[in-house]
Amino acid sequence: METRFRRILLTALMLCYSSLLVAQQPAADDDSVMIEPSIERIEFDEAQIDTEDLEILLMLGYLSIEDFGVNELLQFNLNYHVNESIFVQVSFGQSDGGETSYEIITQGAPLLTPSERELSYYNINIGYNLLPGEAFLGDQLAHNTAFYLSAGIGVTEFAGDDRFTINYGAGYRFLLNDATGIYTDFRNHVFDMDTFGENKATNNLAFTLGISWFF
């Protein structure tokens, strides 16, 4: 009996409360209409600004491997522009060693297996935009450019071994627009080789042309 009374009482109370809510609803709407501003407000959101400090590069060119001829080189770079002058760079490259003069003349047994002839490397470099500037195409177009220097360390895998490598070089960056650039780069990769008995430092020159995208 007691629970039934309680239930009826509660139901009545709920009904009263909900009708009150319904009665209040339109009043609240009227208020909001009165203070609604007629101008649409545009917020400035910093996250909307397109930040372009990272740059990916695809480079093609030639690598002269000491004693193993000149061969095609494919290289990928990822640049991070720390400030207007300095950038850090990670690069991966791949090429193939040709035949040595000895192998060509004697027509004897090859010194390296085909897989040992594959050359690949990675480098971590620091670059400096030494001469930022502008290049003018005709009297209407101006393009931002930079002559940069960069150097770093890495590892080259060639002739079956990993070889500690230092590399240094210079290049020219020509920006087609704010997001795309054209590169030309000249670089020396120095690593030790002991394949022919004595251990000697080899200088391996690379010339590459590339295209880059900022993102």
């Binding site: 600004i49 397109d50 930040t51 372009e52 400090d53 522009h81 400030n83 207007e84 704010d178 900022f214």
Partner: peptide, 11 residues
């Protein structure tokens, strides 16, 4: 209008 950003520079 701000268009883009490179390091601490804004176009």
């Amino acid at each position: 209008l701000v268009l883009r950003q490179k390091t601490v520079w804004f176009k």
